[in-house]
């Protein structure tokens, strides 16, 4: 079963948290000027929990995610990934190989020790069962996103990164995908970091929220949400969101003063 390994990892006491400290991250703009994107950002996420990074567009969310994924070693700071560091990642775009079928796209990402794993359940949960032999060009955006999510879970990740995986989907499909994703993270007990600009989405899914400032980005407010995650009713989500908005506004004012 595709989820067994994850549970084993859990019981084996694989409880290292995600720790990310970015003292500084900058890059050169096209005209040669140095742009500082992140400064003094510290983030800690307990093993098995679901964190959300929330911030305005262009504040460097994707940059932070890439650093957390180990894809960008060019920063000052430290990164400790949870567990053995096996990563599942869902990019903003599905990033599938157009010349491989849905099933091959998922299987190609598998590490050698999981090459023969049965993915039937996973495909079924994500509603991909009848599309396995199709090529990405024949899929709707929703199905392509599901394939990318399937790929991220199929590797049996210790650590899951999601970069706005639901943008430009219509609300009904995005809602269903959120539910499926929550079910999968709960089942696999994987440490998850979601990047989003949508507060409601973050409140619905996460149990720890990190609010980001404008550039150079750091965390202006961190908030743990009471359990259970996923099961929050829309009233609860709305009231927590309102409360958060007030807190962020206050934090932003204080941030402006200092």
């Amino acid at each position: 079963m595709w989820c067994n390994r994850l549970n084993d990892a859990q019981t084996a006491g694989d409880a290292a948290p995600l720790e990310l400290r970015i003292a500084a991250k900058s890059f050169l703009s096209a005209d040669g000027a140095r742009v500082e994107v992140v400064r003094d950002l510290q983030l800690r996420l307990e093993a098995g929990s679901f964190g959300a990074l929330i911030g305005p567009s262009g504040c460097g969310k994707t940059t932070i995610l890439k650093i957390a994924a180990g894809l960008d070693p060019d920063f000052r700071g430290q990164l400790r990934t949870p567990g053995s560091g096996r990563l599942g990642i869902v990019f903003q775009e599905p990033r599938l190989l157009p010349w491989r079928t849905v099933e091959d796209n998922v299987r190609l990402a598998l590490p050698a020790d999981r090459a023969d794993v049965d993915l039937g359940d996973l495909f079924e949960i994500l509603g991909l069962g009848s599309h396995l032999t199709r090529y990405p060009a024949e899929l709707s955006l929703g199905l392509a996103r599901r394939t990318a999510i399937a790929r991220a879970f199929a590797v049996g990740p210790d650590f899951l990164l999601l970069d706005e995986p639901f943008v430009s989907l219509d609300e009904a499909i995005a809602d269903r995908l959120r539910e499926e994703l929550l079910a999968l993270t709960a089942r696999a007990k994987v440490t998850t970091l979601l990047v989003t600009h949508d507060l409601t989405e973050a409140v619905e899914m996460a149990d720890r929220l990190f609010f980001l400032s404008d550039r150079p980005t750091h965390i202006i407010l961190e908030k743990a949400l009471p359990p259970p995650r996923g099961g929050r009713s829309s009233d609860v989500v709305a009231s927590i969101s309102d409360e958060m908005r007030a807190l962020i506004a206050q934090a932003a004012i204080e941030h402006g003063k200092s």
């Binding site: 890439k66 894809l71 990642i89 775009e93 190989l97 491989r100 190609l108 590490p111 050698a112």
Partner: peptide, 21 residues
Amino acid sequence: PELDEMAKAYQFARLSRIRNL
């Protein structure tokens, strides 16, 4: 480069990267 990044994140073996990417 985006597919490259994907292959790096999922640690594609060198041969698989050449063949599939």
